[in-house]
Design a protein around this nucleic acid. Structure first.
Length: 1001
RNA sequence: GGGCGCAUAGCUCAGUGGUAGAGCACUGCCUUCACACGGCAGGGGUCCGUGGUUCGAACCCACGUGCGCCCA
């Protein structure tokens, strides 16, 4: 069946992908050197965007290349569970039916998420199939599947036991809409129009000072007596939680105030708090007033200052970023704050956090409502100096779209600093190498300044923190009297007194006021730990808090007459999705089981990803891999570009310039998109994607298709026992030579992750050598009389086409596989074909064919310039040709006749009358163009050639005249210049002779 | 403020000590029997600027200008 005229990408793509998968082509062969790549797991709710398309295409190119080279390739695929995104998707779905997550129990909700995943969670996987990704689907993993969850729990428990995971109160990015901590990655900082409010903080006790400003030369520009310090803030509502005012230690304006107290200028007048004026390197004397208010619980920078100076961190807001409404009336809370401040030593974090410094009238307002109230009060009191319009950087939650509130909360943390050491060392020592290598700087910079990693999220969907809490034990005097117990139940006796009222020997009893942590890989193990810990006469029961406090539960149990039942509960938080992704290179290979895959494929060979997740993912995989496997997770990290639109703009939904890769795949075919992405994947620069370029590569695909049709129409095929090393004709030996060169170029480019060079080398060989010259030069032979030459040429064309299919397969898997199937009797799939081929370089044959190519090109150029009609045939006269040239002319005569439309070829010592002349390869050729020749045009053309040649000779002469060049430059460079000069001079002489002959006419 | 980049043809980009390249776009010619998603030919460049190193700089170094991005 002949090849169809057109390649139908839609039909071929799905059919072939299925065939590959069915044929087991994506599975490791079990033979050869192991080569493993783990796919960066896409979000299970995600769909394919251009970044995925690029990353997946590049990986697939590498993987197909290595597979064809005979390596034992495992491309490990899977998705991550994307805690927030997935929970949101399911909640949105529920909302459509008028349901809320909290209508369900946690368990029921998680069940719903699994149902959603079963129905709709496979979208991006199918899109990977459309891209042609040769991943091993039989090993697909999901971060929430049983094995990966076991890995997560094991890692958590071990790190906890090693002290590398801990619970602490620190500042996090709090999303008040989603009501959870989120990672830096999920925070998008945007410039928005805002304001800067300048506010006076009166000095305590009405003190005054001389405020002096000077210019750069030290001249005084302002002097006044002030009884306040001015601060500037973009968030006036946080004034309520100020713990200090900070100035730069070198700022002379405020030097007299350091160590003094000033007044927080809002809240009821009679309860104004006094806060210290301190120094810190953070305030920029040139920014605002130079004095910065410090609200440690609601600002990253302030947090640092407060921590350094021991300033209390007053939390002002609740989980919805509304002003706190808990605690005692404001007057009492202020006193508590003052009492804590006056205590010696560091204030207790929890005690400070319990203090609510929001004045009674502002409690329950949202952040912005409170802001206007605060401004209003300042204005009324005259402490508002001025309001400045200002562009400010504001953090937004990328999923919720609301302003992120830096907030002090209790979270689980990984002590990343301790784990970073080996991860830094692994890159320094070259165990893991970044490509391009300058990305290691980004890695070092982050690793060396790494912050504790917040791993807990206040969600339901995810790996639940494997920690259970119960009361700790403390000593008691024995069993309390039943009277005391009754009194305690009625609330007439404190628990303490009740417990101490007992008689008999001392014993351990639960103290519900303090927590005991049980960290274990399963509830069973945790339960066993508890059983061990608690006295045998207590029962242990697991409860879900579901919004209740443990005190309430304890009380309820007591009321029900079950004081011997100890309620324990699991931590309600889940872990950051990145925590499970950090284990990806070994968890997907089966860890914690000791699998043969883990043994064989870890460390993996290469990781391909974009630079923006070096921090969030690459660095963390390095830390976890080194900690748990004692080896790096991958030997090389290829960092590819970010895909931008054709004008270099970042693609974003708001700009509306997002290109859907699937759309282009529909229009141009997957192969064209893949080739385009590879050809543009240069190192060290972003990738500006243009539709015209994809179109160009679609044309390239069509070109290959048509070349194959040409081969087919000539009934060319590779015969049994074909030996490309035994070819006779220069043309055939030449294309074998070029095929060898091309394969070498593509191979070394791919080994160096130079996808652009690899694509270009394959493109050039296919189009500019095979199609433009091999096929064209074959035509006179195929149409000629020499049967043996015909057979050899047909066989070679078919063989060379096969080489092209092999070479292009990693880039364009579909069209190449289809042609492979359609153009011969094949033993198997092209994708499993051997990449290697014998070295068939032959410079002599290459020289012969290049002679023809050069001469044909020169003649064509001359004809075009002389406006010789394409149909006209011209005789060619070689002037004083040497023996080799004569041989070549004889050999190449059919080619010259057909491709340069030469009539016949003769040798002469002097040119015929009225001939245009060209000089190439040291020989002058005359083309009697008689009726076509325009004498002056031909003279002008020759003069131009002469001018160019003279200028080249001039440049070389300058060099050679330079004594220092001759004496200091390497000999071969000098020799080369002599050779070049000789060549140019010979050409020049011949050109001048040609010109002289014309002038003589 | 700290860090990382980029600046080469109209556009998008390779090149990185010795001869300036590609693709696309552009111009002219050609429906020739694989392909007009094609063929042939052609035009087009102070390699951002200024210094320095060197026999020699688009390339190495310094400074400057402009533009990105990351961290704070």
């Amino acid at each position: 069946m002949p090849l169809p005229k057109q390649f139908d990408s839609a039909d071929v793509e799905s059919r072939l992908y299925e065939a590959w998968e069915k044929g087991g082509c994506f599975k490791p062969s079990g033979k050869g050197e192991p080569f493993c790549v783990v796919i960066p797991p896409p979000n299970v709710t995600g769909s394919l965007h251009m970044g995925h398309a690029l990353n997946t295409t590049l990986q697939d190119i590498l993987v197909r290349f290595e597979r064809m080279r005979g390596k034992d390739v495992l491309w490990q695929v899977g998705t991550d569970h994307a805690g927030i995104a997935t929970q949101m998707v399911v909640e949105r779905q529920m909302a459509e039916k008028g349901e809320k997550r909290t209508d369900l129990s946690r368990e029921e909700f998680i069940e719903r998420v699994w149902e959603w995943k079963a129905e709709s969670g496979g979208k991006i996987q199918n899109q990977f199939r459309r891209l042609g990704a040769s991943v091993d689907w039989s090993r697909e993993r999901f971060t929430m599947d049983e094995g990966l969850s076991a890995a997560v729990r094991k890692v958590f428990v071990q790190l906890y036991e090693e002290g590398l995971i801990y619970r602490a109160k620190r500042l996090v990015n709090w999303d008040p809409k989603l009501v959870t901590a989120i990672s830096d990655l999920e925070v998008e900082t945007r410039e928005v129009q805002g304001h800067m409010w300048h506010v006076k903080y009166p000095l305590a006790g009405g003190e005054t000072y001389e405020y002096v400003e000077t210019d750069a030369d030290g001249n005084e520009t302002l002097r006044e007596t002030r009884d306040y310090i001015a601060i500037a803030t973009t968030r006036p509502e946080t004034i309520l939680g100020d713990g200090a005012v900070a100035v730069h230690p070198d700022d002379q304006r405020y030097a007299p105030l350091v160590g003094k107290l000033c007044e927080v200028p809002v809240g009821p007048k009679e309860h104004r708090r006094l806060i210290p004026i301190i120094t810190d390197e953070y305030p920029d004397p040139d920014f605002g007033s130079g004095a910065v208010k410090i609200t440690g619980a609601h600002d990253q920078n302030d947090y640092g200052v407060a921590k350094r100076a021991g300033i209390p961190l007053y939390r002002l807001m609740d989980e919805h970023a509304s002003m706190r409404a808990d605690g005692a009336p404001y007057a009492e809370e202020v006193e508590k704050a003052a009492a804590l401040r006056d205590q010696d030593g560091e204030p207790d974090e929890a005690a400070v956090d319990a203090i609510n410094l929001v004045p009674d009238d502002l409690r329950g307002l949202d952040r912005y409502g409170a802001r206007w109230e605060v401004i209003g009060q300042c204005e009324a009191e005259g402490t508002l100096i001025r309001v400045e319009d200002k562009t400010i950087q504001q953090p937004f939650g990328d999923r919720s779209g609301v302003v992120i509130e830096p907030m002090l909360t209790d979270q689980w943390w990984v002590d990343a600093e301790k784990m970073a050491g080996p991860a830094i060392e692994a890159v320094r020592s070259g165990k893991t190498r970044f490509v391009p290598e300058n990305w290691d700087k980004t890695y070092y910079q982050w690793m060396e300044n790494i912050e504790p990693w917040c791993i807990s999220r206040q969600l339901w969907w995810g790996h639940r923190v494997p920690v259970w809490y119960g009361p700790s034990l403390r000593k008691s005097m024995g069993k309390p009297s039943s009277d005391a117990l009754e009194q305690w139940k009625r609330g007439e006796l404190s628990m303490e007194d009740m417990l101490m009222s007992g008689e008999g020997p001392e014993r351990m009893i639960p103290d519900h006021g303090t927590k005991k942590v049980f960290c274990a890989e399963s509830s069973e193990k945790a339960f066993a730990m508890m059983r061990e810990y608690y006295p045998t006469d207590y029962q242990i029961g697991t409860v879900e808090l579901e919004g209740r406090s443990i005190d309430d539960i304890v009380h309820q149990l007591a009321e029900k007459g079950r004081p011997n039942l100890i309620p324990v509960y699991q931590d309600e938080d889940v872990l950051d999705t990145w925590f499970s992704s950090a284990l990806w290179p070994f968890s997907t290979l089966g860890w914690p089981e000791e699998t043969s895959e883990l043994e064989r494929f870890y460390p993996t060979a290469a990781l391909s990803t974009a630079f923006d997740i070096i921090f969030f993912w690459v660095a963390r995989m390095m830390m976890m891999g080194l900690h748990f496997q004692k080896e790096v997770p991958f030997k090389e990290v290829y960092i590819h570009a970010i895909v931008r639109d054709e004008h270099g703009q970042k693609m974003s939904k708001s700009k509306g310039n997002v290109v859907d890769p699937l759309g282009w795949m529909d229009t141009y075919g997957t192969d064209a998109l893949r080739f385009c992405l590879a050809a543009q994947a240069t190192q060290g620069r972003d990738l500006n994607l243009s539709e015209q370029r994809v179109e160009g590569y679609r044309n390239f695909r069509t070109k290959i298709w048509n070349a194959a049709r040409f081969v087919e129409m000539n009934e060319a095929s590779v015969p049994e026992g074909f030996d490309p090393a035994a070819l006779k004709l220069p043309l055939n030996r030449w294309i074998a030579h070029e095929a060898t060169e091309a394969r070498a170029q593509v191979t070394s480019a791919l080994e160096a992750y130079r996808f652009d060079d690899a694509a270009q080398a394959a493109y050039r060989f296919t189009w500019n050598l095979y199609c433009d010259w091999a096929l064209e030069l074959s035509k006179p032979i195929l149409n000629g009389e020499d049967a043996a030459a015909k057979e050899e040429t047909k066989a070679t064309l078919a063989w060379a086409l096969d080489r092209i299919l092999v070479l292009l397969h990693p880039f364009m898997p579909f069209v190449t596989e289809e042609l492979w199937a359609q153009t011969g009797e094949r033993d198997g799939f092209l994708m499993l074909e051997d990449w290697s081929a014998p070295d068939l370089r032959d410079e002599a044959a290459a020289g012969d064919v290049r002679f023809a190519i050069d001469l044909i090109s020169e003649i064509r150029s001359l004809r075009a310039e002389m406006n010789v009609p394409p149909s006209a045939r011209l005789p060619l006269v070689a002037l004083g040709a040497d023996a080799e040239t004569q041989r070549r002319l004889k050999d190449q005569a059919p080619a010259l006749r057909q491709l340069a439309r030469i009539e016949d070829i003769t040798l002469a010592d002097t040119p015929p009358q009225g001939a245009a002349q060209i000089v190439t390869g040291g020989v002058t050729y005359a083309l009697p163009v008689a009726e076509h020749i325009d004498l002056s045009a031909e003279l002008a053309r020759l003069e131009k050639e002469i001018g160019k040649t003279e200028s080249e000779i001039g440049k070389i002469d300058n060099k050679l005249a330079n004594e220092k060049f001759v004496s200091r430059a390497p000999k071969e460079v000098v020799d080369e210049q002599h050779t070049r000069r000789a060549d140019f001079t010979a050409t020049l002489e011949k050109l001048q002779a040609a010109k002289a002959r014309l002038e003589a006419m």
